Amino acid sequence: MELNNKSPFRGLGLEICANSVESAIAAQQGGADRIELCTNLAEGGTTPSYGQIKWCVENLNTEVWPLIRPRGGDFLYSDAEFENILEDISYCKQIGCKGLVTGLLNKNGDIDEQRCAKIISVASPMPVAFHRAFDMSADLSKSLEKIIKLGFVRILTSGGKENAFVGAKKLKELVIQADNRIEIMPGAGINADNLLEIAQTTGARNFHTTAKSIVASKMQFRNEASKMAGENTDEFSHEQTDLIKVKVLKEILNHL
């Protein structure tokens, strides 16, 4: 594909979903343009601790946008959970986060407009992005219009499919429908092998991925008889953002 200085692919950005402070450090060192800070990737990400958020805001130069999601599972929350969400948002605003990421649905699959409006109000002037709760909504086209009207600045989405590569055609439709009123950011399953094709197909300008690898434990003593997690879980390794993978992805975008 031939590109000139006026190419729509110029200035593409990379958001890294970082599941720890070490992942956030690797994301910054790899050249990420923004960090979505979370924990518990196995459940699609939940809210990181106050200490993690504070450390990243105070020690990193890259924008930090915490994920505000009180638990795994669906995006239909109780009153107590919603109060928890608002408290987390207030904390993020207080310590100087550049933005935050969240999303709520009603039981019928519509966007929870009343609670989302409250979130936008509490967060202001801090911008808010809508996460992949969007993909679980009943009608993506209608949900997009509601999210725009509410004042969210970005939607993280796989096009309602299992990953962004499979959902690329729908993502293109969403980018066209959005018409620069909001950013459509493809995410889920993006890697060095498919980033180029996803970018070309969708026309999106920013992309989201974990860029993670398995990190082996440095522990010398290992009690193999005890388990802290599931039966088939490796107790002596964890997932972490891979600096090299981030660099490779950023290099791909820089050459588009």
Rank of each mutant, 00 (worst) to 15 (best):
191 N>M: 01
53 I>R: 07
102 T>H: 02
132 R>T: 04
71 R>S: 14
3 L>F: 15
8 P>K: 15
167 G>K: 13
176 I>R: 10
170 K>H: 05
237 S>M: 09
159 G>Y: 09
17 C>W: 11
108 N>W: 04
143 S>I: 04
254 N>Y: 09
103 G>S: 09
142 K>Y: 06
27 A>G: 01
167 G>T: 10
24 A>W: 14
28 Q>H: 05
184 I>R: 11
134 F>G: 03
206 N>A: 14
114 Q>S: 11
211 A>P: 00
163 N>W: 10
185 M>N: 04
219 M>W: 01
176 I>D: 12
146 K>Y: 01
27 A>N: 00
181 R>G: 04
65 W>L: 13
59 N>C: 03
117 A>S: 15
63 E>K: 15
145 E>I: 06
42 A>E: 13
32 A>N: 08
235 E>T: 05
146 K>A: 05
131 H>G: 03
78 S>K: 07
124 S>L: 10
171 L>R: 08
190 I>T: 02
173 E>G: 00
40 N>V: 02
228 M>C: 01
16 I>R: 04
218 K>H: 09
56 C>W: 12
164 A>L: 06
2 E>N: 12
193 D>W: 11
76 L>N: 06
177 Q>S: 13
59 N>F: 08
127 P>D: 14
41 L>W: 08
101 V>A: 08
163 N>A: 02
10 R>N: 12
90 S>P: 01
2 E>L: 08
107 K>W: 07
203 G>T: 15
75 F>E: 04
26 A>L: 06
146 K>W: 00
181 R>T: 10
76 L>R: 11
49 S>K: 13
73 G>S: 03
182 I>D: 02
235 E>G: 14
130 F>L: 03
117 A>V: 12
122 V>I: 15
116 C>L: 14
50 Y>K: 07
129 A>P: 11
106 N>G: 01
6 K>H: 10
207 F>V: 02
97 C>F: 12
200 Q>M: 12
130 F>H: 09
95 I>H: 08
235 E>V: 03
54 K>C: 01
55 W>T: 13
255 H>Y: 12
187 G>K: 12
51 G>Q: 08
72 G>N: 10
161 K>V: 00
222 R>Q: 14
225 A>N: 15
155 I>G: 00
16 I>Y: 06
252 I>C: 01
123 A>K: 11
118 K>H: 03
170 K>L: 01
172 K>R: 13
92 C>F: 12
112 D>K: 04
190 I>A: 02
179 D>N: 14
90 S>H: 13
183 E>S: 06
131 H>C: 06
